[in-house]
């Protein structure tokens, strides 16, 4: 185990992600939880950078922080009068949530343990090739063409649905 600057930055990001995720689920104020989620999403983006998936990291920030989180905050600010919420949790919900968490943990551990050959990325100072080209090839010219198109159609349907719901009724 060698300690380098990168190791420290990696653990910094990991700590940031986990600590802020804990704040998200424990804090009572919903807006604080949403802003804490921002830190979590940033931490995950940082971890993507460590996987040398730079495009994915920027996408994470642009989609989740710049898009979805803003929508969540919009929702919170425009709907709830009370920000301090004491949510009552049923025992059944607790059990179900716990089961899902344990199942997810098991899945992740199995994946980590069964993955053959984690490769070590050599860092010899050279600039890495861009990942965008490969991603584009895979999505538009490779095995993920069909899922990509299906997702596009799904988003289009959602868009039309949103326009339908929010359109003005014209009565005559």
């Amino acid at each position: 185990m060698e300690f380098t600057l990168k190791t420290f930055i990696f653990y910094g990001f990991a700590f940031l992600t986990i600590a802020s995720a804990l704040v998200v689920v424990t804090v009572r104020n919903i807006v604080h939880a949403a802003f804490s989620l921002m830190v979590t999403l940033f931490g995950v983006a940082g971890l993507y950078v460590f996987l040398q998936a730079d495009f994915l990291a920027a996408t994470q920030v642009i989609v989740y922080v710049g898009g979805i989180l803003v929508l969540i905050l919009f929702g919170v600010m425009m709907t709830s009068g009370r920000l301090e919420m004491r949510i009552h949790i049923e025992r059944g919900q607790l059990l179900l949530g716990g089961l899902v968490a344990v199942a997810l943990l098991m899945l992740l551990l199995t994946v980590i343990a069964n993955t053959p050959a984690w490769k070590n990325l050599t860092d010899d100072g050279t600039k890495l090739p861009p990942t965008t080209e490969r991603i584009g090839e895979l999505i538009l010219n490779g095995p993920f063409l069909l899922p990509f198109e299906v997702v596009s159609v799904l988003l289009l349907v959602a868009l039309i649905g949103a326009a339908m719901i929010s359109r003005k009724e014209i009565r005559d």
């Binding site: 343990a113 993955t115 050959a117 490769k119």
Partner: peptide, 20 residues
């Protein structure tokens, strides 16, 4: 397809769960 999709060996050496 992603040769880059890997973590440094420092964090996850290639051993089973118990060893981990």
């Amino acid at each position: 397809g992603f040769p880059d999709f890997n973590v440094s060996e420092n964090f996850f050496p290639n051993i089973n769960l118990q060893d981990k």
